[in-house]
Amino acid sequence: MELINKANKYFMETYAQLPVVLVKGNGSTVYDTKGNSYIDFTSGVGVNSLGYGDTEWIKAVEEQSKSLSHISNIFYNLPSIQLAEKLVDNACMSRVFFSNSGAEANEGAIKLARKYSFDKYGKDRSSIITLKQSFHGRTVTTLSATGQEKYHNYFFPFTDGFKYVTANAYDDFINNLDSGVCAVMMEAIQGEGGVIPLEADYVKKVVAKCRENDIVVIFDEIQCGIGRTGLLFGYNHFDAEPDIVTIAKGLASGLPIGAVLCNEKLSKVFKPGDHGSTFGANPVASAGALVVLDKVCNKAFMDSVITKGDIIKGFLKNKCNTILEVRGKGLMIGIQIQGNAAKIQKEALSNGLLVLTAGPDVIRLLPPLIINEGELVKGLEILCQVIDK
């Protein structure tokens, strides 16, 4: 308790932290200061895609940190150039801008979409439609983009220019579409909003309508991208072609990084001085991200993520008696329960399992993509015992 008391003395009270101090990890297991082990179904909220202790990732990061840890974007650096090529080619996009977080990536996407519209149509075409229950970040602008009323307090004035529509309700989208809309921003699966997948037909109709009206389509892939759903991006399940894609979290498996990808239409919208990021294209983070993409961007790896997602769904369906619904894709799973999700989370912790929540009655699972079947089943056994208790 001494370390926790010290943390509570010095940290701002922004997190309702659980009472463990984690010190190391191996594979999909983490350990606290007392030597207790925990199967990790959180991966740092989807960040540690390769789990803990991946030797190739460690080698790449270590070697890069020895040669060049940071350099200004006034200059080029080799790992970021290599990462840009690999990302753009695998995503079938045109160009990339690197940032250091998901919120910053979404800020960049908003600016890019608005500048495209400003250059072509003038300043009165600037509003962006987002979805209710969405989550796009913690900055003032990305909070404003977030379609959850509970976040729209305290920090006034929020950035203007966002409208919220109900996910999977096409009529609501059409009713809010007017001449002032420049972009639509969606998550393929709403993670923080309850792990709610979009419907393929809805996405198809929205994207088609945007194409008719030259409205920029943005997919926020911060949480469901980089193989999390069994495909490189969540929107790949819909055969959609966005104009802008934002990524972060799992891209560098533990190092801060974000990115904005755009297609050819928007590839020359930003000019020197329009945008920037001090830590964007950091060489060490880029080196880590290159290892992640080398491992994730192959069919066998992606297929294993889908298989493990099917194992989770099948186990919960057959072994848990009190679950209301299981939803999601790959290793991004939401479990609707009858009880209190925060209570389940704490009880799982005391039994050696780390899980997340996504609202008052949803347990969220985001295991490392490399988790093996044995760890998966062992963790699910703990979870079902706690839920059915």
Rank of each mutant, 00 (worst) to 15 (best):
L324F: 01
D54P: 04
Y38C: 09
E85F: 00
I337M: 04
G193N: 09
G250K: 13
Q17P: 00
I128E: 09
C320F: 02
M186W: 04
I128K: 04
A285Q: 07
T55W: 00
V377P: 06
N321G: 02
A84S: 15
R364F: 02
I382T: 14
E149D: 14
F238K: 01
E187I: 00
V195H: 08
V386R: 06
I387M: 02
S65L: 01
T357C: 06
V30I: 14
I247W: 02
C182V: 04
T146S: 15
T307Y: 14
Y154A: 12
T146V: 04
T322I: 01
F270E: 09
P197V: 07
A281V: 09
A285K: 06
P19Q: 05
L251V: 08
G35Q: 11
A289H: 04
T130E: 03
V216R: 08
E212L: 03
A200W: 01
A167W: 02
I128T: 10
L143V: 11
K343P: 02
M93L: 15
S267Y: 05
Q17V: 01
Y10Q: 03
Q17C: 00
Y31G: 08
C297D: 10
G352Y: 03
K24L: 00
F97P: 03
G122H: 09
G108L: 06
V291E: 13
S117T: 11
E264W: 00
F11Y: 13
A341Q: 05
N175Q: 14
C210Q: 08
I58T: 12
I323W: 01
N372C: 12
K265F: 00
A109I: 08
D201P: 02
L365T: 06
G359Q: 03
V291R: 12
G288H: 11
T55S: 15
M93W: 06
A281W: 02
M93N: 11
L22D: 11
T139E: 13
M1R: 11
Y164P: 06
Y235Q: 09
L266V: 10
T141L: 14
S67N: 13
S304A: 10
K34I: 00
T159P: 01
S117E: 10
E325D: 14
L369C: 10
S179I: 04
I110Q: 08
E221A: 07
Y121F: 15
A84C: 04
A91W: 02
C182D: 10
K86R: 14
L369M: 13
R114S: 10
T42H: 04
K24I: 00
A109F: 05
S80C: 06
I218E: 12
L231T: 15
V245W: 02
V165T: 10
T139Q: 11
N175C: 04
E149R: 10
I306Y: 10
I74D: 15
A60M: 03
S127A: 03
N318G: 02
M185L: 15
G161V: 06
S267I: 08
N8Y: 11
K249L: 03
V377R: 14
A240T: 07
C320P: 10
S134P: 05
R228A: 13
L143I: 13
I215G: 08
G334Q: 06
I174L: 15
M1Y: 14
L83V: 10
D54N: 15
R364Q: 09
Q133W: 04
I39S: 07
F41T: 08
Y154M: 13
V292D: 12
H237N: 12
D361K: 08
Q148A: 03
T322V: 01
